[in-house]
Nucleic acid binder design. Structure first.
Lengths: 268, 268
DNA sequence: TTGCTCCTCACGTCACGTGAGGTGGC
DNA sequence: TTGCTCCTCACGTCACGTGAGGTGGC
């Protein structure tokens, strides 16, 4: 007996449905197992048969999965009548938080990579030293700068001409080492060599601080007063070094160590 | 007998170390279990005792974990002498891919949310319809536009004045519905009402296409020729509707349906 | 009858969270 | 001695991947 078969009678075996949907058989097994998509039919031998409405539901599931929803959320959306706006809104919020964290992390990684490039054959302990330094500097900077200033330091726009992806390579450690060498050698601060170093330090600082004098000043005080915390045990005479560089910049000025701050007050 | 205890002899019980490191006891158990951080000592009763070098290693682990490294990668970095640049470089690449995908997803979600807001009490099937429409339009647009044009459509900069976070609300479906109503009612295309609709459609299209005439033209052809694929079964006479709107824009021009394309050729 | 597809367990993933049931240390 | 801390299993998470061992269907 020949029966008319229209499209509504069409069924698919699990392998066929997997093929046309681009999923794996295991995935369809899984959806059956958790009750998300149970085929309407089975053969006598227990083989799954998917009817058209099953295929439709599968495509809905795939579409919603493409929005980053969890299978449990998809099930709810397809069975109860929750407001999809609530779900998507929550999804956007979660995603936004993740994206921000990811972007920050990528910046840190890029900065570390650039700093590692100054070493010839960087090791894990070079990396660890840099991470520790970064953490120490950030903690200290948070004491000396307002949250807004921190924000500006972190989200500095690249110069129009500069390649956007390449992070600013931090030259400051190398420059401070050069300055220390001159200081130890007893070179006069008005010596052109020292003045050149001071100038380069100012340029690098300005690049980092976005040219904000408030920030530059606060950062200088930070190094003078608490540089030891960032490089503990190195015995670098930070206060003297900063003053030495100040003398290189302004040969005629009196140089009292200034102790007043424009940054937020200490809290203990 | 009093023994001199210097810092090198200091040991911590697991709870103490957890407290000062901000981790949980379970986490330290886990690190011990997988051999990432095994305490140097145990009491007679089997309680873990962490020596200073253990604490140091823990802080290294925490620092590296903060870079998004997996525990297995951290172990390698701390035990073998792999180049940290390779690891961080790979990390940056992975992260970049994820961030791109995440940003695209967030845009899609935001666009869907905005479109859902046009409905009063949107349901899951409203959402599914929109998703299906979006997919259909994107597939079709990929046929009519070059990859560069697609890119520009996707990464359009917001207007200087507009709020950056809010996605452009797509007005086009509503406008086309109005146009269809006038068309069905037999309104003359030179009627000011129809001309106003056509103008608004042009403005909305320009906003979407970034004012690129090539893109606007390709998109118009797309709707005229294949609009049916995006709204299957609605019976909207797309070709006639697009021509009707063209007559509203240019009352004096002859209007042959044009079939030439500037977009990439079809492939079958 | 021979392949090929399908079936049902069941373990593994990653970094822990969360008990359960029992013992050590001040 | 009483709490508190610590111990060792062991299951659960999320969405499947990857076999193992066996049977159905053209």
């Amino acid at each position: 007996m020949l029966v008319h078969m229209n499209d509504d009678d069409r069924v698919w075996r699990i392998g066929e449905l997997a093929q046309i949907s681009g999923l794996t058989v295991r995935t369809l097994h899984h959806y059956d197992q958790i009750g998300l998509l149970c085929p309407s039919l089975r053969t006598g031998g227990g083989h799954r048969l998917y009817a058209p409405q099953d295929a439709t539901r599968l495509y809905e599931i795939v579409a919603l999965r493409g929005l980053g929803l969890q299978l449990e959320q998809i099930r709810e959306l397809l069975t109860t009548d929750v407001d999809p706006r609530a779900l998507l809104g929550e999804q956007v919020r979660t995603l936004t938080v993740q994206l921000k964290a990811g972007a920050r992390l990528r910046e840190r990684l890029a900065a570390l990579l650039a700093a590692l490039d100054t070493a010839d054959q960087p090791t894990a302990s070079d990396l660890l030293g840099l991470v520790q330094q970064t953490v120490a500097v950030e903690r200290l900077a948070a004491e000396y700068l307002s949250p807004e200033q921190m924000e500006r330091l972190g989200h500095r726009r690249p110069e129009p001409g500069a390649p956007a992806a390449a992070p600013v390579k931090n030259e400051l450690p190398r420059l401070y080492e050069q300055a220390l060498a001159e200081y130890d050698a007893g070179t006069d601060p008005v010596d052109p060599v020292v003045r050149a170093i001071a100038e380069q330090i100012d340029e690098a600082s300005a690049a980092l601080s976005g040219g904000d004098d408030q920030v530059t000043g606060a950062v200088r005080r930070m190094w003078a007063e608490r540089g030891e915390e960032v490089y503990p045990g190195t015995g670098i005479p930070w206060a003297a070094l900063v003053e030495y560089l100040d003398r290189a910049r302004h040969p005629n000025r009196a140089h009292e160590p200034d102790r007043c701050r424009t940054a937020p007050e200490d809290e203990q």
